[in-house]
Protein backbone atom coordinates (compact mmCIF):
# COMPACT_ATOMS: atom_id res chain seq x y z
CA UNK A 1 0.00 0.00 0.00
CA UNK A 2 1.07 3.55 -0.56
CA UNK A 3 2.49 5.23 2.56
CA UNK A 4 0.41 7.89 4.24
CA UNK A 5 1.06 11.36 2.87
CA UNK A 6 2.60 14.17 4.85
CA UNK A 7 6.02 15.74 4.96
CA UNK A 8 9.05 14.29 6.67
CA UNK A 9 8.76 16.49 9.78
CA UNK A 10 5.14 15.55 10.34
CA UNK A 11 5.92 11.86 9.97
CA UNK A 12 8.79 12.10 12.42
CA UNK A 13 6.52 13.92 14.83
CA UNK A 14 3.91 11.19 14.53
CA UNK A 15 6.57 8.53 15.15
CA UNK A 16 7.97 10.37 18.15
CA UNK A 17 4.47 10.66 19.57
CA UNK A 18 4.09 6.88 19.36
CA UNK A 19 7.44 6.38 21.11
CA UNK A 20 6.54 8.92 23.78
CA UNK A 21 3.22 7.09 24.27
CA UNK A 22 5.28 4.03 25.14
CA UNK A 23 7.60 6.08 27.38
CA UNK A 24 10.47 5.33 25.00
CA UNK A 25 10.53 1.78 26.31
CA UNK A 26 12.54 -0.78 24.40
CA UNK A 27 9.70 -3.24 24.97
CA UNK A 28 7.59 -1.24 22.53
CA UNK A 29 10.02 -1.86 19.67
CA UNK A 30 7.60 -3.86 17.53
CA UNK A 31 4.79 -1.32 17.92
CA UNK A 32 7.19 1.48 17.07
CA UNK A 33 8.48 -0.32 13.97
CA UNK A 34 4.86 -0.80 12.96
CA UNK A 35 4.14 2.89 13.35
CA UNK A 36 7.25 3.77 11.32
CA UNK A 37 6.24 1.44 8.50
CA UNK A 38 2.75 2.91 8.50
CA UNK A 39 4.15 6.42 8.06
CA UNK A 40 6.90 5.71 5.54
CA UNK A 41 5.70 2.51 3.89
CA UNK A 42 8.96 0.72 4.71
CA UNK A 43 11.86 0.82 7.15
CA UNK A 44 15.08 2.55 6.19
CA UNK A 45 18.42 2.38 8.00
CA UNK A 46 18.00 6.00 8.98
CA UNK A 47 14.64 5.29 10.58
CA UNK A 48 15.93 2.26 12.45
CA UNK A 49 18.93 4.21 13.69
CA UNK A 50 16.58 6.94 14.93
CA UNK A 51 14.40 4.37 16.69
CA UNK A 52 17.44 2.65 18.22
CA UNK A 53 18.65 5.95 19.67
CA UNK A 54 15.28 6.98 21.05
CA UNK A 55 14.47 3.58 22.56
CA UNK A 56 18.05 3.10 23.74
CA UNK A 57 18.53 -0.17 21.94
CA UNK A 58 21.55 -1.42 20.02
CA UNK A 59 20.95 -0.93 16.28
CA UNK A 60 21.73 -4.58 15.55
CA UNK A 61 18.93 -5.59 17.94
CA UNK A 62 16.47 -3.30 16.14
CA UNK A 63 17.33 -4.75 12.74
CA UNK A 64 17.38 -8.26 14.20
CA UNK A 65 13.83 -7.90 15.46
CA UNK A 66 12.61 -6.13 12.31
CA UNK A 67 13.97 -8.83 10.00
CA UNK A 68 12.47 -11.60 12.11
CA UNK A 69 8.94 -10.62 11.08
CA UNK A 70 7.77 -11.01 7.48
CA UNK A 71 5.53 -8.04 7.96
CA UNK A 72 8.31 -5.47 7.89
CA UNK A 73 9.64 -4.19 4.57
CA UNK A 74 13.02 -2.64 3.88
CA UNK A 75 12.49 -1.46 0.33
CA UNK A 76 9.95 0.89 -1.12
CA UNK A 77 6.72 -1.02 -1.79
CA UNK A 78 5.33 -1.06 -5.33
CA UNK A 79 2.46 1.41 -5.79
CA UNK A 80 -0.01 -1.44 -6.38
CA UNK A 81 -0.23 -4.95 -5.06
CA UNK A 82 -2.05 -7.97 -6.52
CA UNK A 83 -2.32 -11.23 -4.61
CA UNK A 84 -3.27 -14.37 -6.54
CA UNK A 85 -4.70 -17.08 -4.32
CA UNK A 86 -2.92 -20.38 -4.84
CA UNK A 87 -5.10 -22.33 -2.42
CA UNK A 88 -6.28 -25.73 -3.63
CA UNK A 89 -9.67 -24.59 -4.94
CA UNK A 90 -8.22 -21.61 -6.79
CA UNK A 91 -5.37 -23.67 -8.10
CA UNK A 92 -7.73 -26.26 -9.54
CA UNK A 93 -9.71 -23.44 -11.17
CA UNK A 94 -6.64 -22.14 -12.98
CA UNK A 95 -4.79 -19.85 -10.55
CA UNK A 96 -1.51 -20.61 -12.31
CA UNK A 97 -2.80 -18.97 -15.53
CA UNK A 98 -4.01 -15.99 -13.52
CA UNK A 99 -0.60 -15.62 -11.94
CA UNK A 100 1.07 -15.78 -15.33
CA UNK A 101 -1.05 -13.06 -16.83
CA UNK A 102 -0.80 -10.91 -13.70
CA UNK A 103 2.99 -11.16 -13.89
CA UNK A 104 2.92 -10.15 -17.53
CA UNK A 105 0.61 -7.22 -16.79
CA UNK A 106 2.74 -6.11 -13.87
CA UNK A 107 5.84 -5.79 -16.01
CA UNK A 108 4.02 -2.95 -17.79
CA UNK A 109 2.67 -0.96 -14.89
CA UNK A 110 4.11 -0.89 -11.42
CA UNK A 111 2.32 -3.79 -9.75
CA UNK A 112 3.87 -6.12 -7.26
CA UNK A 113 2.37 -9.58 -7.77
CA UNK A 114 2.48 -12.05 -4.92
CA UNK A 115 0.69 -15.27 -4.12
CA UNK A 116 -1.40 -16.18 -1.12
CA UNK A 117 -2.68 -19.38 0.44
CA UNK A 118 -6.47 -19.58 0.53
CA UNK A 119 -8.21 -16.28 1.13
CA UNK A 120 -11.21 -18.19 2.49
CA UNK A 121 -13.60 -17.77 -0.45
CA UNK A 122 -13.19 -21.11 -2.18
CA UNK A 123 -16.73 -20.92 -3.60
CA UNK A 124 -15.62 -17.93 -5.68
CA UNK A 125 -12.44 -19.54 -7.00
CA UNK A 126 -10.23 -18.50 -8.55
CA UNK A 127 -9.73 -15.39 -6.48
CA UNK A 128 -7.31 -12.50 -6.92
CA UNK A 129 -7.02 -9.46 -4.67
CA UNK A 130 -6.10 -6.16 -6.33
CA UNK A 131 -5.05 -3.39 -3.93
CA UNK A 132 -7.23 -4.93 -1.26
CA UNK A 133 -10.32 -5.53 -3.45
CA UNK A 134 -11.19 -9.17 -4.11
CA UNK A 135 -12.11 -10.36 -7.61
CA UNK A 136 -14.12 -13.56 -7.74
CA UNK A 137 -14.06 -16.10 -10.60
CA UNK A 138 -11.19 -14.10 -12.03
CA UNK A 139 -10.03 -14.75 -15.57
CA UNK A 140 -6.60 -13.78 -16.88
CA UNK A 141 -8.16 -11.19 -19.17
CA UNK A 142 -10.34 -9.67 -16.44
CA UNK A 143 -7.45 -9.52 -14.00
CA UNK A 144 -5.06 -7.77 -16.36
CA UNK A 145 -7.81 -5.40 -17.44
CA UNK A 146 -8.48 -4.54 -13.78
CA UNK A 147 -4.78 -3.98 -13.17
CA UNK A 148 -4.55 -1.64 -16.13
CA UNK A 149 -7.70 0.20 -15.08
CA UNK A 150 -6.35 0.80 -11.58
CA UNK A 151 -3.03 1.92 -13.00
CA UNK A 152 -4.71 4.37 -15.35
CA UNK A 153 -6.89 5.74 -12.56
CA UNK A 154 -3.80 6.40 -10.46
CA UNK A 155 -1.72 7.76 -13.36
CA UNK A 156 -3.91 10.06 -15.44
CA UNK A 157 -2.54 11.42 -18.69
CA UNK A 158 -0.72 9.79 -21.57
CA UNK A 159 1.31 6.81 -20.59
CA UNK A 160 4.32 5.16 -22.02
CA UNK A 161 3.76 1.62 -23.17
CA UNK A 162 6.78 -0.54 -22.73
Amino acid sequence: MIPASGNEDERLKALDAVMAGHHYSGHALIEVLHAAQKEWGYLTSGLMRHIARKLRLPPSRVLGVATFYHLFRFTSPAPHEAVVCMGTACYVQGAANLLDSARRACARNGWAVTTGRCVGSCGLAPVAVCDGAAMSRATPAALSAEMERKYDAANPGPRARG
Binding site: S60, L63, T67
Partner: peptide
Protein backbone atom coordinates in the same frame (compact mmCIF):
# COMPACT_ATOMS: atom_id res chain seq x y z
CA UNK B 1 26.29 -5.16 21.26
CA UNK B 2 27.60 -4.64 17.76
CA UNK B 3 26.51 -8.11 16.71
CA UNK B 4 23.08 -9.68 16.54
CA UNK B 5 21.15 -12.19 14.45
CA UNK B 6 18.99 -10.91 11.59
CA UNK B 7 16.44 -12.82 9.54
CA UNK B 8 15.04 -16.20 10.37
CA UNK B 9 15.25 -19.78 9.22
CA UNK B 10 17.55 -20.30 6.29
CA UNK B 11 18.12 -16.57 5.87
CA UNK B 12 19.28 -16.01 9.46
CA UNK B 13 22.73 -14.46 9.69
CA UNK B 14 25.02 -12.51 12.00
CA UNK B 15 24.93 -8.75 11.43
CA UNK B 16 27.01 -5.81 12.63
CA UNK B 17 24.92 -2.75 13.59
CA UNK B 18 22.35 -2.15 10.85
CA UNK B 19 23.90 -4.84 8.64
CA UNK B 20 26.48 -2.35 7.45
CA UNK B 21 29.97 -3.62 6.65
CA UNK B 22 31.78 -4.44 9.89
CA UNK B 23 34.52 -1.94 9.10
CA UNK B 24 31.95 0.87 9.17
CA UNK B 25 30.46 -0.13 12.50
CA UNK B 26 30.09 2.75 14.94
CA UNK B 27 29.67 0.53 17.99
Amino acid sequence: HTLDVAGRGRTARIITDLAEPWGHSES
